[in-house]
Design a protein around this nucleic acid. Structure first.
Length: 583
RNA sequence: GGUCCCGUGGUGCAGUUUGGAGUGCACGCCGGCCUGUCAAGCCGGAGGUCGCGGGUUCAAAUCCCGUCGGGACCGCCA
């Protein structure tokens, strides 16, 4: 550095005609070089802002991904050489002096976006992968989302509080990650699945409005939308109702959407859990497309067809699906069976409402006509029908609907949805004890409280809770509830769940104790930031918006975690490792 | 725990159905030529345990069995 400029005076992607005649210093990586003999070469220099073409006198010593500092004068490109595909395409850097700050081996894969490189290769060299436009863009979107969420919560009077990462394990919910205690051998901390209990303690502590961008950990199988560790905007507020929670979360989400897209989020529509199940066969409906579940039970109420003598018959209409080949239909039938259906009935709609189906001959003319009328089918459609218990029918058709109709992640815009009035219990176990749909601190709906004492276990399944989910394009972004803040209701709940007082005290004693010392009414919500960012970035997979994610089997190809630890570490922790299982 | 898909020079693919010499394409890499390119161009070159192991066969990238790795989904994720 022999010139008077700083190491870097400008960023590559920001130079424009406004900078013409300025002498600048830019730093970055060699993205591409184009040599034209001994005395002319073009270097595309890249930093996080973009590319700038540098005209240099011979580039034979420069290679891809070398780290260089180039000083030069910004000038307009000669006529006819402007590149409209490049942000800085109207200018270039001339009279260049090149300083090699570091050499680099050829990258293990190509950094341009023309080919989709195998994700293992990318993850094994994530530090190179992060240089791509895609990862730069995604991580910067993520940073903006975090900042806008913080601002939105601060502006609404929320206090950011950090809760511990090393906590007591509770047996409920997901599988815990555990950490052995050195000072208390044989004892373990758990890493938090969420700050749930601590944020409720904050409410007892008079914090009034709490939030945290919190890391949560769950040792469950990974998916496109699930990693072991993930980030949530976690919130809780005192002296509020469900309405106020939906409102302040909507403000935060709208702030993130505005920050990334520049668009104002319209008011988020609502749907009851029951309606979501009936119309979409899911508690997280993807409302970007139709193909809704159609109620057909009345059409087949008096049917002679054995397969339709069920408590529920529903169908979906697949526009244009009459073209499906027999093998495609067989494949769908197989899938439906794997998802729990007894079978799948398909009908191709021909001209004038005639139905082409192996089972058409078992149905009466009235039933066939009713089917066409109710589904509003037209020639060329395919009707898929499932008959079974209501829950199974909705579940299978909901999955079929997604399989056949779900648009690509970048299509259909951002369709947010509040799903409200979740049931308090999702089913009864073998002892007729209800299984909670949410956690056991969820407040039942005020109008349904009397059902808790009816004595009929089936009535329990009708009890709605003050629990609500936020859904975006068919992904569950997050969920929340109004909590039980009174000891007497909480005891009643534990008793319904078949949890003895002693057991409750052992598992949640500190929370129950706290509730004896003046717990305010409170409610909260938490939603997954990885999922929100992925959908805002147009990514199918949250790994694309996480700097250093893990593979589906929980491995990190970069650091090779998880790894063994040496005998001395085990000894110190009082641990012994069993030999691997040989099935 | 289960179902399905994928694995071929550094990268992305084709080749596998119907077995016949590691065959092909594009990018990248190395060398040469080239004074306005921008996915530069032209010429030349190097680079392979066809994931791994076993089987069938005169012969296996190709067929069979097993296994490892990756991915999508069901279960699971209060």
């Amino acid at each position: 550095m022999t010139d008077s400029l700083p190491m870097r005076s400008d960023h590559c992607g920001t130079l424009s005609v406004a900078d013409i005649d300025r002498r600048v210093a830019v730093c970055g990586w060699v993205a591409r070089r184009r040599e034209h003999g001994e005395h002319l070469a073009f270097i595309d220099l890249r930093d996080h802002t973009g590319l700038i073409q540098c005209v240099v006198d011979g580039a034979h010593v420069l290679r891809s991904e070398f780290v260089v500092r180039i000083t030069g004068v910004v000038r307009a490109r000669p006529e006819g050489t402007v590149n409209p595909n490049l942000g800085t395409g109207a200018v270039e850097l001339g009279e260049c002096e090149v300083e090699i700050l570091n050499i680099a081996e050829p990258p293990p894969f190509q950094l341009d976006e023309r080919v989709e490189v195998d994700e293992m290769v990318r993850l094994a060299h994530r530090y190179v992968d992060l240089r791509t436009d895609r990862m730069q863009r995604n991580l910067r979107i993520r940073s903006k989302v975090n900042a806008s969420l913080r601002r939105a919560m601060d502006d609404q009077g929320f206090v950011e509080i950090e809760t511990p990462m090393l906590i007591a394990s509770t047996p409920e919910g997901a599988r815990d990650f555990v950490v052995p205690s050195r000072l208390t051998p044989g004892s373990f901390y758990a890493l938090p699945q969420s700050p749930q209990l601590f944020k409720q303690l904050c409410m007892v502590g008079g914090i009034d409005r709490y939030y945290q961008i919190a890391r949560c950990l769950r040792d469950e199988d990974l998916r496109a939308d699930r990693q072991f560790e993930f980030m949530q905007l976690d919130t809780e507020a005192s002296f509020v109702t469900q309405e106020e929670v939906l409102a302040f979360i909507s403000v935060a989400v709208a702030a993130a959407v505005r920050e990334v897209t520049g668009q104002e989020l319209p008011e988020v529509p609502r749907m009851t859990w029951h309606e979501a199940q009936e119309r979409f066969g899911s508690d997280k409906p993807d409302t970007r497309f139709g193909m809704e579940l159609i109620e057909l039970t009345p059409v087949f109420a008096n049917t002679e067809f054995n397969a339709f003598k069920a408590s529920c018959v529903k169908g979906i209409r697949v526009p244009g699906g009459a073209e499906f080949t027999r093998s495609r239909l067989d494949d769908l039938t197989e899938r439906a069976k794997r998802w729990g259906a007894k079978g799948l009935v398909w009908m191709r709609v021909r001209a004038e409402g005639e139905l082409d189906s192996p089972v058409a001959k078992f149905l009466s003319p009235e039933e066939l006509a009713g089917l066409v009328a109710t589904t509003e089918s037209v020639e060329g459609d395919l009707i898929l029908l499932v008959a079974d218990e209501r829950h199974a029918v909705c579940h299978v058709l909901g999955l079929l609907r997604l399989e056949l109709g779900r648009p690509p992640v970048t299509d259909g815009g951002l369709q947010f949805l509040w799903v409200v009035d979740f049931p308090l219990f999702e089913a009864l176990d073998d002892n007729n004890n209800p299984i909670p749909a949410h956690h056991p601190f969820t407040m039942p709906h005020a109008e349904d409280v009397e059902l808790l004492d009816s004595g009929d276990p089936r009535d329990l399944l009708k009890v709605r809770s003050q629990a609500y989910d936020l859904v975006l394009n068919g992904w569950e972004l997050g969920s929340g509830s109004v909590r039980i803040h009174r000891g007497d209701i909480q005891k009643r709940m534990f008793s319904l769940l078949g949890i003895e007082a002693e057991e409750a005290q052992e598992k949640f004693g500190f929370l129950l104790d706290a509730f004896r010392f003046g717990a305010p009414p409170h409610a909260g919500f938490a939603f997954g930031i990885d999922r929100l960012v992925a959908l805002l970035a147009g990514e199918e997979n949250i790994r694309e918006v996480i700097a250093f994610p893990k593979t589906q089997s929980g491995h990190d190809p970069l650091t090779h975690a998880p790894s063994t630890i040496d005998a001395a570490q085990l000894e110190e922790l009082g641990l012994r490792v069993l030999p691997p299982k040989k099935d």
